[in-house]
Amino acid sequence: MHKPLTQKRLHAAIIVTAILAAATAQAAEVTVNQHDKAFVVEGNKIETITINVGDTLRFKNDDPFFHNIFSLSDLKTFDLGSFPKGKSKTVTFDRAGMAEVECAIHPEMYIEVTVK
C-alpha cells in the first residue's frame, strides 16, 4: 500500500531540515576586524586565513574611517560596499578554493582566504 502523498512530503521535509541543520551546526562564523588598516583576528594581524566550506567571515570595521571589502576572485566575487566604524558585513564561502580579499579604499589591506 502506497503512503499518502502528504506523508511523503512530510518525510522529505524532515530529511531536508535534518541536512540543513547538520550543515548549519558545522558552519562557523569568524570575525575579521579591520584595525589600523589591517585585517585582524582575535588581536593578531593576519595575511591568510583558512576556513571550511560553508563558513562565514564577518568583516567588522574598528577604524575611525570607512573600509570597503571586496574580492574579484573566481572563487567568490563580492563587493561589500563601504561601511563605517562599528559596522560589519558578512560573506559566506560555499566552495573550496582560494580568494584574494582586499579593501578597495586601502589596497595595502589584503588577505588570502583558503576554503577547504
Binding site: 570597503n68 571586496f70 574579484l72 563587493d79 560596499g81 563601504s82 578597495a104 579604499i105 589596497p107
Partner: peptide, 14 residues
C-alpha cells in the same frame, strides 16, 4: 581614476 584598475564602485573617480 582607480576604477580603471579595479572595477569596484567606490573607486569610480577615486
Amino acid at each position: 581614476g582607480r576604477y580603471g584598475i579595479r572595477k569596484i564602485k567606490i573607486l569610480k573617480g577615486a
